[in-house]
Simulated scan of single mutants.
Amino acid sequence: MAIIHRTAIVHEGAQLHETVEVGAYAVIHANVKIGAGTKVGEHCVIDGHTTIGENNVFYRFCSIGGIPQDKKYNYEQTYLEIGNNNTFREFVTVNTGTAQDMGVTRIGDDNWIMAYVHIAHDCQIGSHTIIANTVQLAGHIHIGDWAIIGGMSAAHQFIHIGAHSMTGGMSSIRQDIPPFVLGAGQPYKPAGINTEGLKRRGFSDNQIQVLREAYKIIYLRQLSLEDALVEIKKLQQVHTDTTEHLQLFIDFFETAHRGIGRK
């Protein structure tokens, strides 16, 4: 049997692995599934059609799986899916999806989500991200793997934030942020490549230098976006060790959802 504090409430129908721990005064509703090793802290509420993987930690007062904060929501059956090894600090809120999108909010693996973060309906969060204190994510936002968002930042609905990017604190994010890019501001402005983060993840000096060159082509050469992408594709042919990363960069620009501000 799961280790459930005597003051906690686990509704009939909830599926908890025998190694799950549930703290005092927590409430887990009927349509929730929780995998092995996950810990639910004191006063947490987990509801909705929510599936949670293994070895997650929910600190006290989290609200997970609540209905969307969307006036169009009409109590359709929508979902929240959370992977493995995530940490949710105090007062994090995560909502289920809406029928107007895919109907599911998703959070991948090994994410570090700090206190008072709000993840709205239909967000798609990758893996290994860091989302700092009081970051507010509106609906339908996509965040790539290894992205970092600084504290007290707010992101407009439908934007995409690329993998390996880093956004400074107190940023107002109104347009898409490409992969690998470092920036901040109100509104957000790009400032270069996330060099230190890429080094920590094992990118070679040459790969980082090539990504710097791609950044310069996009942001500093005063080329049209079409011409800039042609030049980046030429880089791919020369620097084969960076082909995959440059393709991620190219694909992002070619499919930008809310536009990408350039200097």
Rank of each mutant, 00 (worst) to 15 (best):
A2Y: 06
I4Q: 00
T7L: 05
I9Q: 09
H11I: 12
G13D: 12
G13R: 12
E21Y: 05
A26Y: 12
V27D: 06
I28D: 03
H29V: 08
A30N: 14
A30G: 12
K33W: 04
T38Y: 04
E42F: 13
C44L: 01
I46L: 13
I46H: 02
T50W: 09
T50G: 06
G53K: 01
G53V: 07
F58G: 01
Y59E: 13
Y59A: 10
R60A: 15
C62Y: 09
C62H: 09
C62W: 07
I64Y: 09
G65E: 11
G65A: 12
Q69E: 06
K71T: 15
Y75H: 14
Q77A: 10
Y79A: 02
G83I: 11
N85M: 09
N86P: 11
F88L: 04
F88D: 01
V92D: 01
N95R: 14
G97C: 11
A99P: 07
D101M: 03
D101P: 00
G103S: 08
G103A: 10
G103W: 08
V104H: 00
R106V: 12
I107F: 00
D109K: 01
N111Q: 04
M114A: 05
A115F: 11
V117R: 00
H118P: 09
H118V: 11
A120Q: 05
H121A: 03
C123I: 05
Q124E: 12
S127W: 09
T129N: 01
I131Q: 02
A132D: 08
N133Y: 01
L137V: 13
I141D: 02
I141W: 04
H142E: 15
H142F: 11
H142C: 11
A147C: 10
S153R: 04
A154G: 15
A154I: 08
A155I: 13
H156A: 03
Q157A: 09
Q157F: 10
F158H: 03
F158G: 00
H160I: 08
A163W: 02
M166G: 04
T167K: 03
G168T: 10
G168I: 09
S171I: 03
S171E: 05
S171Y: 03
S172T: 14
S172R: 15
R174K: 14
D176Q: 07
I177M: 05
P179A: 03
P179E: 02
G183K: 10
A184L: 11
G185R: 07
Q186A: 14
Y188E: 08
A191D: 08
G192A: 02
E196P: 00
L198E: 03
K199E: 13
R200L: 10
F203K: 06
Q207M: 09
Q209N: 13
V210D: 00
A214L: 05
K216I: 05
I218W: 07
Y219D: 11
L223T: 12
S224I: 11
S224D: 14
D227R: 13
A228G: 08
V230S: 02
E231G: 01
I232F: 03
I232A: 02
L235V: 07
Q237N: 15
V238R: 15
V238Y: 12
T243H: 11
E244T: 14
H245R: 08
L246D: 03
Q247A: 08
F252H: 01
E254G: 11
T255P: 06
H257A: 15
R258A: 09
G259A: 07
R262W: 07
